[in-house]
Write a protein that binds this DNA or RNA. Sequence first.
DNA 1: AAGAATAAATTGTACGTACAAGCCAGACGA
DNA 2: TCGTCTGGCTTGTACGTACAATTTATTCTT
Lengths: 362, 362
Amino acid sequence: MNNRRIPKYMQLKHELLSWFESGKLQRGQQVPSENEIAEQFGMSRQTVRQTFGELEKEGWLERIQGKGTFARNPERREGEQVKTIGIITTYISDYIFPHIVRGAEAELRSRGYRLLLSSTDNNKEKEMESLQLMTSQPLSGLIIEPTKSAEGNPNLAYFLELQEKGIPYLMINEKYRELECTCLKVNDEAGGYKAAEYLLEQGHVRIAGFFKRDDLQGVNRLKGFLAAHKAAGISASPKRVVTYTTEQKNTLPYQQALHMLAEGEERPTAFVCYNDELAVLLMEAVSASGLRVPEDVSIIGFDDSSLASASGTKLTTLTHPKTMMGQEAASRLIAIIERGETAEDRVYEPQLIERDSVAKRN
Amino acid sequence: MNNRRIPKYMQLKHELLSWFESGKLQRGQQVPSENEIAEQFGMSRQTVRQTFGELEKEGWLERIQGKGTFARNPERREGEQVKTIGIITTYISDYIFPHIVRGAEAELRSRGYRLLLSSTDNNKEKEMESLQLMTSQPLSGLIIEPTKSAEGNPNLAYFLELQEKGIPYLMINEKYRELECTCLKVNDEAGGYKAAEYLLEQGHVRIAGFFKRDDLQGVNRLKGFLAAHKAAGISASPKRVVTYTTEQKNTLPYQQALHMLAEGEERPTAFVCYNDELAVLLMEAVSASGLRVPEDVSIIGFDDSSLASASGTKLTTLTHPKTMMGQEAASRLIAIIERGETAEDRVYEPQLIERDSVAKRN
DNA sequence: AAGAATAAATTGTACGTACAAGCCAGACGA
DNA sequence: TCGTCTGGCTTGTACGTACAATTTATTCTT
């Protein structure tokens, strides 16, 4: 028997732990006395004491002099467990992200979890910093919004580490292609499709599209934009499709828009924008070109952010679940943590909200 | 000797722990062997083993068979210290709060601290929940934005508990009157004064003021508003001063504004609003009354939020440090934690930003 | 000089005894 | 009936022995 190599007190320890697992020992229940155990297992009381001592230090047993040894609530361990969940988003203060965080925070607080927050500013180095900090202490789970998801993922090692440590995580808005994990996202392709389709239905033909290319959300929205053109039998002119990166977001699309609008009769009559933030920026470009929204140029945004209704001309845009996404991400993660459920992807269908920034053409 | 009552192995344990404290035992250093200790202290090896066993379980010693017993890095305990700072704000997703959080988050991340976030929705019960959750696990420090600071503070016990536990905290925007603690805030009274003074300078005489009364920010802004009137020798009519609570914020001021604007020639020509959020709401009230901003009614907001520039008519408003306040709160708290500094209050002077919502009168 | 065997020291395992200290139920006495 | 006491149980402390397993330095062998 290879049992010969395992010390007796360890064998007894494993035996007792199996009692806990099988439910043979319930919380508060008295454990046979040291002498009884010693006799039953054919070992000396001292050896039993060694086992009991370790189990007591580890919180499984409680020994009371003169009274006996008792099984301690093993749930105490889970009760005292971390209960902290981290969220890593690209931005904190801007745009729709505060709403996502808020949804998650409310859910977590009501479920007794603490929320660790960190942002990456869409910068992979800061993503690494954040991952390191988050995992530097015990963590129950992690919600991550990928940084520049369309590019490679240099922090793959950290995610694998999460898996090794048994820290469940899920992604929102997008997922890294390299990782298999649950993801809550908007159907961006359908959104891009709907935006373009809607404009085409209103009689627009020369539609410009502005999409971010370093995250998959932008790539997918562009994909839908092109698909709608194809379905309508109208070719989307490559010169009216602008892609840009996070770093260029405040300059390149604006300049390209000015450029297009200066093309006289050939200028586009509508803009599909990656998101509301860009839409507001391009509204200014339109205005700077001496044109008006929506009379001269129609604009569609994305995400139905507060910017969409706050701006002078209220933006027609596509919805994003925002708060609900945060809330759902939190509750799914808790389900994974507490009940070991395996969550499936959740895809939200964006709805078009008609406001004032799109004009009927013809 | 009362030593008689203390078991030998406990006496030895205390002795060894004192060695750690005095530096007699440094990390990695070898401890005398069990037999040596037994001889020195006149006890059996078994008793020494009991002591060593406990100290090993508690992380003070490392025992290696055949090699000896070694002092484990006691700094390990401090090295793994918490480095987590909590922030409790009234709101997360709205208004200027995301910017405050962002400032603090960036600072904390760069200094190697984790950020725990929680919100109260300006509700004292949720404040209690948040405090409980935050302190349920080790915490280095806490930044708190008081909830309804003008009212009493039912969670005083929790704050005293923080002091007992030695968790430093500081307040932003306002402080609870009952607590002595460092506070970073805007000079709200000066802000209210400047707003009213500016309008009076532009020739306005009938100025209405809308202020929140359940937090001290609102109370102080109102105080400044009244002081400016007094200094100008113009009485502020009580019927043009509206105070409201958090729960009423979306209804009462709006209705009161409509009411005032319906007063014909006696209607106010300017509104001083508690903050930009209210200012935007009241702009709608003006518009709903068939009047225009700023031609018929001038409006001044507060906090220079994104709403101020996003709205159709850009708001004249007073500045709030926002991101800088978050950043400074974080860095001061870290200074308290790491160097035991005692931080003094920091008062930011608000600046008036002239935009388009105020008209010169006469 | 390099490797192998050995010895000494260390901690680990296992059993043993003895008594102290604390809890509890049942016997006992007022 | 109530309180007290006692005996028997429990775990706690303390010492003891013996040998196993591991490390390290030393010695021996090649």
